[in-house]
Design a protein around this nucleic acid. Structure first.
Length: 454
RNA sequence: GUGGUUGUAGUUCAGUCGGUUAGAACGUCGGAUUGUGGUUCCGAAGGUCGUGGGUUCGAAUCCCAUCAUCCACCCCA
């Protein structure tokens, strides 16, 4: 036998039955996005490396898939660069394109590029695959889809409110119990300021992000290891120990952060957001979580993360406000906010919890059995008529044994089979068989179409 | 990038102490049944035991390397 074919690490094929389920998720999410006035865009799978590099931190740059230049790319490389074997120097000479790492940065590029054609605020959604050269593991792939919604060109907190409503709407429809965790980068910045470690905001947030997972002691150890002073760690303790409802936490923070202008601004934003959301009667729980940091370093305001309550899989949706993402591309002072739904993890949850709907409109409703040439000709006009009426139908393409044709219908879960052979042609009729009950009826072409239209 | 796990038929897995011709179930195909399926019965096809090297009279089995895989960490959806 020839060598067994395979696909690259961390990628997957999707079978017809998987696609039906995936489309259920995508369609549902799109429906909600449109409901709030968002419009679709698409961008290319590959971007110029200059667009991508440096936007996701050092770690992110390493995880970018880079595309080799075409043609005789190696002869153009200088001998020193080759001899040095330094990837940072060599890579720019042999690769100038990369696969997109997320949808937000390409979106920022899009906005800057078409700024004169776009009407702001610009509300767009985008559902496309992204690629990361990460080691795959559970719930983690090298190619996966993101479903992004962003609104750019508006500072209003109303956008944050709407995004939480969208999250609530999507997961209510999917029947997944979730909790939306909300924090604000300005609060985190304020904390770093109060504690006296302004410079170390990233180290501090990354460390406290792990609080729930590794515990207070290890977080403190990691902070010390990163070079945060003992005094700062000590000052941090009361903040990490904050308890109570989201509103109560915010009130306490107001006091703690009273000397930090940024921090107070963040608290103010949080209070307003929670007050609006409180009036909306959401199905989803929302809570202020000070340990929520989120890795991507372009966030500047609110940050969101959604976790499933009944399933351990990490976050299934996340996002936040970024005040200056387009600045790097030459369009400063444009604020945006958005969230991204992780379709693959949502799929895993729905599959495990058996929450996919049983019936879908995607599959074939009726199969015409094939008895031979004369019978084919007899069936074709009716088949065409059924399709005109929007009924998914097909005819078995070969004159095969009944058993094979029936098995085909079973495997594809086709609920009806039409039998039309010699005797039906004589009687100018069709036999409709219900594959679930086994019941058979003799019908005229008109009756057949009428019955199947339901 | 770091640590570990597992690689045997299309799939899930057996395979004893290293022993001669590597098994099962499911799936596939054919037949019982030339116009009636899901159940049943019979039969068949399907293998470089991940790959390369080593030890041995003899390796799916032991050793080394390599590739792949899954899991955890870093990070993240």
């Amino acid at each position: 036998m020839a060598q067994k074919p395979s696909i690259p690490k961390g990628t997957r094929d999707f079978s017809p039955s998987e696609m039906v389920k995936r489309n259920y998720i995508f369609d549902l999410i799109k429906d909600v996005f449109r409901l709030y006035g968002f419009q679709p865009i698409e961008t290319p799978a590959m971007e110029n490396l200059s667009t991508l590099m440096g936007k996701y931190g050092e770690e992110g740059d390493k995880l970018l898939f880079k595309i080799l230049n075409s043609g005789d790319f190696i002869s153009k490389v200088s001998d020193e660069a080759l001899a040095e074997k330094n990837p940072n120097k060599l890579t720019p000479q042999i690769s100038e394109k990369g696969l997109r790492y997320d949808l937000t940065v390409p979106f920022a590029r899009f906005v800057v590029q078409y700024q004169n054609e776009i009407t702001f605020p610009f509300k767009r959604y985008q559902i496309q695959p992204v690629w990361r050269a990460d080691r795959p593991q559970k719930g983690r792939y090298r190619e996966f889809y993101q479903c992004d919604v962003d609104v750019i060109g508006s500072n209003s907190l109303l956008n944050e409110v709407e995004l939480v409503q969208i999250i609530d709407d999507v997961f209510s429809r999917l029947k997944i119990n979730t909790v939306v965790k909300i924090n604000n980068r300005k609060i985190l910045a304020g904390i770093a300021e109060i504690v006296g470690e302004n410079e170390r905001i990233t180290d501090i947030t990354v460390a406290i992000d792990k609080l729930e997972k590794i515990g207070l002691e290890k977080v403190n150890a990691e902070l010390a290891e990163k070079g945060v002073s003992d005094l700062a760690i000590e000052r941090l303790q009361p903040i990490l120990a904050l308890e109570g409802s989201s509103v109560e936490k915010a009130a306490q923070l107001e006091k703690i952060l009273e000397k930090s202008e940024t921090g107070l601004k963040g608290v103010g934003e949080i209070e307003k957001l929670f007050s609006y959301l409180g009036q909306l009667g959401l199905n989803t729980d929302i809570e202020l979580d000070l340990t929520l940091a989120r890795g991507l370093n372009y966030y500047t305001g609110a940050i969101f993360e959604v976790k499933a309550k009944d399933f351990e899989i990490g976050s299934i949706c996340g996002g936040g406000r970024y005040d200056d993402l387009t600045g790097i591309f030459g369009l400063p002072n444009v604020s945006g906010v958005g969230v991204s739904f992780g379709a693959e993890r949502i799929y895993d949850i729905l599959a495990q919890l058996n929450l996919f709907p049983q019936k879908t409109a995607d599959t074939t409703k009726v199969l015409f059995a094939n008895f031979g040439e004369k019978e084919e000709a007899y069936c074709l006009p009716v088949l065409a008529e059924l399709r005109k009426n929007g009924i998914n139908s097909e005819i078995f393409p070969d004159k095969a044994k009944m058993q094979k044709q029936m098995t085909y219908a079973n495997k594809k879960e086709i609920p009806f089979v039409v039998l039309a052979g010699e005797s039906e042609i004589q009687a100018n009729s069709f036999t409709l068989k219900n594959m679930e009950t086994g019941e058979q009826k003799s019908l005229s072409a008109g009756e057949l179409i009428k019955i199947l239209s339901f």
